[in-house]
Write a protein that binds this DNA or RNA. Structure first.
Length: 435
RNA sequence: GCGCCCAUCGUCUAUCGGUCAGGACACCAGGUUUUCAUCCUGGCGAGCCGGGUUCGACUCCCGGUGGGCGCGCCA
């Protein structure tokens, strides 16, 4: 029988990074096995389920490039099947009615556990077992007639012919209940694979308090979906050799359940950023500039940028941009005068002698056509005249022209900035910033 | 409390009894037009502890410690 797996989120808010990772593993497994990847929306909780949340799930999967192979199943449309299953269990004596008092009122339906020790094989954790006395009967239908998660989940997996259930570690204990339910329903028990959790620095489940936790956060921060997908795939799984940056095809080719680790993994935003930078650096200019533009358009100075200048800046900065959002420091290319960093000004421009040298630089640059070779030659001339090493004068000039001590190569930056703005900024620095 | 699970550099990981325990991020040093947010080179850095099994354990077994999860008419 061919592989059929599913991603079954409940649409109650934003899509958590841990859930998306489960989706990625399911998707990768389905593609590797040439099976089917299905989507099921577990919207039985009427109070908390929203259409917006469904859209967020669909958007997240689409953004990350994960397609599903059949029409999504909405759990809320499966009530008849849930009820029917409960009735069958009742008449087979595998479930009974009881008024447990407490929250609900009236009788609910309770599933009777087998009363024997149980065991199942987990594709990641190996053989797992539990003693009969550690497993209690549990409610499958509430007194108001609505099915509880366990029943709905299992019945839907049966009707969808799911062969492998790949889900979070937090479900291992539920698995005994689910296995018992599959058996009582006369269905084939699927194979299970429980993924280790993504945790924070304290070892607790990773949450919004630990930084970006929803996939929308990553999109907003300027991450590339291919990079995020790659990074998440590496959390708990590895291809077996040293490769990390992989194409989708490589990941699919190497993905097997036995290569998934069983211990929890901690999210490392710095490593993700680095990987993201690698992806951005190799993007076609159209993709890169498009990503940056989408981000900059949210900033007050980033809306109606000169297209030629914008593309020049993109070419200059692409290789050193780890995130689209890092382009916020490009501001000095596009505004009248840069924001001058106080510490940089203090260190580079206030010192004795800077004014005189900067005046020489201004004159030398002004005499060129602002082509890179000419700019370089001009700087070399000033350096020689002052008896200082090559590049030694760059930082003062950089602060005068960009307001900061970091950026791309000085000569390239001057060329992109152009004659008019470069000279104007040097004049401004000479008049108001130098000591 | 009871049950289950997990445990290699700070972090993500490789290793499936014999390796100088490898790679990546981060960090440090040097280089790249004395910028770094790119890139290159080098460096620092790990088998939780205690017992076994074995000629030989990170790897297998037992115990401990630490951490996580579960024990709902939540999902």
């Amino acid at each position: 029988m061919s592989v059929r797996v599913r991603f079954a989120p409940s649409p109650t808010g934003q899509v958590h990074i841990g859930n998306i990772r489960a989706a990625i593993f399911n998707w990768l497994f389905a593609r590797h096995e040439q099976g089917r990847f299905l989507l099921r929306i577990e919207d039985t909780d009427k109070e908390r389920s929203t259409p917006e949340a469904v859209k967020a799930i669909v958007d997240a999967l689409t953004w990350l490039g994960m397609n599903w192979d059949e029409e999504p199943v909405y759990q809320s449309t499966q009530h008849a099947r849930h009820r029917e299953a409960a009735e069958r269990l009742l008449s087979a004596g595998r479930a009974y009615k009881e008024d447990k008092g407490g929250t609900g009122q009236g009788e609910c339906i309770v599933f009777r556990m087998p009363g024997t020790d149980m065991a199942f094989h987990d594709e990641i954790k190996g053989d797992l077992r539990k003693k009969a006395e550690d497993m209690k009967d549990f409610v499958i239908v509430r007194s108001d007639g609505s099915p509880v998660f366990h029943l709905a989940n299992v019945v839907d997996d049966v009707t969808m012919d799911i062969t492998h259930i790949i889900r979070g570690d937090d479900h291992v204990e539920n698995t005994y209940r689910h296995v018992a339910l599959f058996q009582a329903l006369g269905a084939t028990v699927p194979k299970y694979a429980h993924l280790p959790m993504i945790v924070n620095a304290q070892g607790k489940p990773y949450s919004k308090r630990d930084g970006a936790a929803y996939i929308g956060d990553f999109r907003d921060k300027g991450f590339d979906p291919l990079a995020l997908f790659n990074y998440l795939a590496l959390l708990g799984w590895s291809p077996g050799d040293d490769r990390e940056k992989m194409t989708r095809e490589e990941m699919i080719a190497f993905f097997t359940l036995d290569r998934i680790k069983s211990g929890p993994a901690q999210m490392d935003l710095r490593k993700l950023s680095h990987l993201n930078g690698l992806y951005l650096a190799e993007q076609p200019m159209e993709t890169f500039s498009g990503g940056v533009r989408a981000f900059l358009s949210k900033l007050d100075w980033g809306q109606a940028l000169d297209e030629t200048l914008f593309l020049d800046v993109c070419r200059l900065m692409q290789s050193r941009t780890p995130l689209y959002s890092a382009a916020e420091v490009w501001k000095y290319f596009f505004v009248e005068l840069p924001d001058y960093d106080a510490k940089a000004v203090e260190k580079q421009l206030r010192k004795d002698g800077v004014k005189a040298v900067l005046t020489q630089i201004r004159a030398a640059l002004a005499a060129t056509d602002f082509s890179q070779p000419a700019l370089l030659q001009a700087m070399r001339g000033v350096e020689a005249a002052n008896g200082v090493g090559e590049g030694k004068l760059n930082q003062g000039l950089r602060v005068a022209v960009t307001g900061t001590t970091i950026g791309a190569g000085m000569i390239e930056t001057l060329a992109v900035l152009g004659r008019e703005r470069s000279l104007k900024r040097i004049d401004h620095a000479l008049a108001t910033l130098c000591g």
